[in-house]
């Protein structure tokens, strides 16, 4: 397979600096609302602050890939004497927990680094974090060319996992018929 150059976008998280304000959740949901900035709802945010104040845990986590199945096992971490709940560091949208899912439909959310046209200098959450918890970095890497799943495909895959392929096919057929009338 051919090698292509790819920009790797990274958000570095310095969790010790987090004051727990959740501004990142607010602006993420605002940016991704339609029309843009028309609605606010941290439950739709693609960044979530995992919070256990008395345990001194404020950990920003970004939504990663959707997965239809839970892991075979779980892990907990203890770092600097702080015990993190199961799956705390995991970025997946998965059946074992309710974060990174659209509250109405349950469809998975995934951080898109606030892709925009023209491109933004940095994602919203990074721009609006005034405590330098989040730092945006880009680097170029050579990778093998591969087809990345598009948004529609990811959404459909999640719907199929939830309702089964037959129901989805039926629904598509019905919608197509209505469109012809």
């Amino acid at each position: 397979m051919a090698k292509i150059k790819k920009i790797v976008k990274t958000i570095k998280v310095d969790a010790d600096k987090c004051n727990g304000c959740r501004g990142c959740e607010i602006v993420c949901s605002a940016f991704h609302s339609t029309p843009r900035y028309s609605g606010i709802n941290p439950a739709r945010s693609r960044i979530q602050i995992i919070r256990h104040p008395l345990k001194d845990i404020w950990l920003p986590v970004f939504a990663g890939e959707y997965t239809p199945a839970e892991c075979m096992g779980r892990e907990t971490y203890i770092i600097d004497g702080k015990e993190y709940d199961e799956c705390t560091f995991c970025r997946a949208t998965c059946p074992s927990r309710d974060i990174f899912k659209e509250p109405d439909s349950g469809l998975p959310l995934k951080c898109d680094m606030c892709e925009d046209d023209p491109p933004r200098e940095k994602p919203m959450c990074v721009e609006w974090c005034l405590n330098e918890v989040l730092t945006y970095e880009e680097r170029e890497e050579e990778v093998e060319e591969s087809q990345e799943a598009q948004d529609v495909e990811i959404g459909l895959k999640a719907m199929m996992d939830k309702y089964g392929p037959d129901k989805i096919a039926d629904a598509l057929a019905r919608m197509a018929q209505k469109g012809q009338q």
Binding site: A30, S33, P35, Y37, G39, I40, N41, P103, L130
Partner: peptide
């Protein structure tokens, strides 16, 4: 605990004000 939307009347204008404030 809530997971509903709050609507802004003019989100673009609102964010502009907040950016100045930032």
């Amino acid at each position: 605990r809530g997971s509903k939307d709050i609507n802004l009347f003019d989100g673009e204008a609102f964010m502009k004000e907040m950016k100045e404030m930032m």
